[in-house]
Amino acid sequence: MIYRRKTYKINPEKLDTFNHFFHTYLYPNQLNYGATLVGRWVNETKDEIVAIWEYTDMEHYEAIEKQIRNSELHKQAQETRKAIGELYIESKQDFLSSTAPPPASYHDPKHIMSVSGYITNQAGEVLLVRNYHRADTLEMPGGQVEVGETLEEAIHREILEETGAIVRLVGITGIYQNVTRGVTCVVFRGEYQSGELRTAESETSEVYFTELTKENIDQLITREQFKTRTLDAMDANYLPYEAFKVRPYELLSRSDVKKEYS
Rank of each mutant, 00 (worst) to 15 (best):
L160E: 15
K258T: 10
E203H: 13
Q78H: 03
Y27R: 13
S97M: 07
I159R: 01
H133C: 08
P102E: 12
R81F: 00
L251Q: 09
R134Q: 15
Y192C: 08
L231G: 05
E196C: 08
E162G: 05
I159Y: 00
E125Y: 05
K9R: 15
K258E: 09
A165P: 08
E86A: 15
F188D: 02
R223N: 02
K259V: 03
L87E: 06
L169E: 07
L197S: 10
D218P: 09
Q93K: 12
N11P: 08
I112P: 02
F226A: 11
P28Q: 08
A154Y: 10
Q193M: 13
A51P: 08
Y241F: 06
N29D: 14
E90F: 04
M140V: 13
E211A: 08
V207H: 02
Q177L: 04
Q225H: 14
N121P: 10
Q193G: 02
K259N: 04
I119G: 06
K14N: 14
A165V: 14
F188C: 10
Y61G: 06
Y241S: 12
T56L: 04
R168I: 08
S71D: 03
I119T: 13
V145M: 09
S202C: 14
S194E: 14
I112W: 10
I112C: 05
A236C: 06
D16L: 14
S98W: 03
R69Q: 13
G190Q: 08
R229Y: 01
Q122N: 15
H23W: 05
R198F: 00
D57H: 07
N178G: 02
A243M: 02
I155P: 05
Y192M: 11
E139R: 13
L26F: 09
A100I: 14
E201I: 15
T80W: 03
I84L: 13
P141L: 05
Q78G: 11
E90V: 14
R81V: 13
A63P: 00
K9L: 13
K245E: 06
R189Y: 00
T210L: 03
P240D: 08
T204M: 07
K214N: 09
F21M: 06
F18T: 12
E153S: 11
V50D: 04
A243S: 11
W41N: 12
F244S: 05
Q76D: 08
Q78I: 15
E153T: 14
L231I: 15
R181Q: 03
Y3I: 15
S255Q: 14
R168G: 05
S253K: 14
S105H: 04
Y249R: 14
E139H: 05
I217H: 02
E139K: 15
V126N: 06
D256L: 12
K75Q: 09
N11L: 11
E201H: 13
L96R: 15
E260R: 01
S105L: 07
S194G: 08
N11G: 03
T184A: 01
E158Q: 14
L73S: 01
F95L: 12
V257W: 00
P141I: 09
E211H: 03
H20Y: 06
I89H: 06
